[in-house]
Computed example of a mutant assay.
Amino acid sequence: MDLFSSEVIKNILPFDGITNYHGVILDKDQCSFYYKRLMETIQFKNDEAIIFGKKIITKRKVAWYGESEFSYTYSKVTKTANIFTQELLELKKLIEEESGETYNSCLLNLYHSGDEGMAYHSDGEKMLKKDGAIASLSLGAERKFSFKHKESKKRIDIVLEKGSLLVMKKGTQTHWLHRLPPTKKVNSPRINLTFRSIEL
């Protein structure tokens, strides 16, 4: 297991992919402002997935936003996007400038505490741009985030700080799984914004 600290690191993956950690890109006041505004304005709902033929409703809440009301299917459930809010447009512009990539949608996750997490998976939905960048912005509680190589099983862990940006691209989804492990050490909420490109 390799553990990366909070220092700014480019490409935290040792092979088979590029995942750039940009470190903290929002200051304390910006973090507080956007966290508060997203909590007030985003239409979060409990996530739904079809697993082994059974409908599962998660404690974690999600929201799907985009440039238009296009649909997006993952875990065999189809969602229709809400139109970007002003705050999401501001964050999208900032992240596009920081990452050098462009995005037309955002899937937001609300984790109420460390009890809620995400199992190992890769974002390989057919509607996503092939090898396109997925930019993950963290607000609220700091959480550990893990990668595991699909073949070698090598693991990389990183602590995602408040206001930090992680950009996964070029082979990451093909060769690596990622997850947000549950923890008893975190009792406060985290909002994770994942900006991505859907091919229309």
Rank of each mutant, 00 (worst) to 15 (best):
Y34G: 05
S136H: 02
N11W: 00
K170P: 03
S71E: 15
E87Y: 07
H178V: 02
G114P: 03
L160M: 15
L180K: 05
S105W: 08
N192T: 10
Y111N: 13
S152W: 01
E161K: 14
E48C: 09
D2S: 12
V186T: 03
G124C: 00
R143N: 03
L107K: 12
T172P: 06
S146A: 12
I42H: 04
N109A: 15
L128Q: 01
I95Y: 01
K76S: 13
H149G: 06
W176A: 11
K169A: 08
K126L: 02
F147N: 08
M127C: 13
L128E: 01
G23N: 00
E87P: 10
D27S: 11
V24R: 04
K28Y: 10
L160H: 10
T80Q: 15
H112G: 14
P182T: 12
D157S: 10
S188Y: 08
M168H: 14
A63L: 03
A63E: 08
E116N: 11
S6V: 01
E40R: 07
L128S: 00
K10N: 11
I42Q: 12
T73L: 13
F70G: 07
I191W: 09
I9W: 03
F145V: 07
L166K: 11
N46R: 06
F44K: 04
K59T: 14
L166E: 12
I25D: 02
K28F: 11
T183D: 06
Y72F: 15
N46V: 04
L110C: 10
F84P: 11
T194R: 08
E142I: 05
E101I: 01
K93E: 10
V8L: 07
I134W: 00
E48R: 14
D27R: 07
W176R: 01
S197L: 09
F195P: 09
S99W: 04
G117L: 09
E87I: 05
L89Y: 06
K153A: 11
E151Y: 04
I56S: 04
S99L: 05
K59S: 10
L128G: 03
R179D: 06
D27W: 07
K45A: 13
S75K: 08
L26F: 05
S136M: 00
T58Y: 15
Y120K: 15
H22N: 07
Y21V: 06
E151S: 11
G114K: 01
K93Y: 06
S75C: 04
C106P: 12
G171D: 07
H178N: 12
I57Y: 03
I12S: 03
V167D: 13
Y103D: 02
K45F: 09
G132V: 00
T102K: 11
L200V: 12
G100L: 03
N109Q: 13
K126F: 01
L160C: 09
A135E: 01
N192R: 08
K76M: 11
I42E: 05
I191R: 08
Y72A: 12
L110S: 13
V186W: 00
L110D: 09
S136L: 02
D157L: 14
A135Q: 02
K130Q: 11
K28I: 13
F195S: 08
F145E: 08
L139P: 08
L139N: 07
S188M: 02
R143C: 07
S71V: 07
L137D: 00
L137E: 03
I51A: 07
R143L: 05
G114E: 00
G163E: 11
Q173K: 05
I198H: 11
N11I: 03
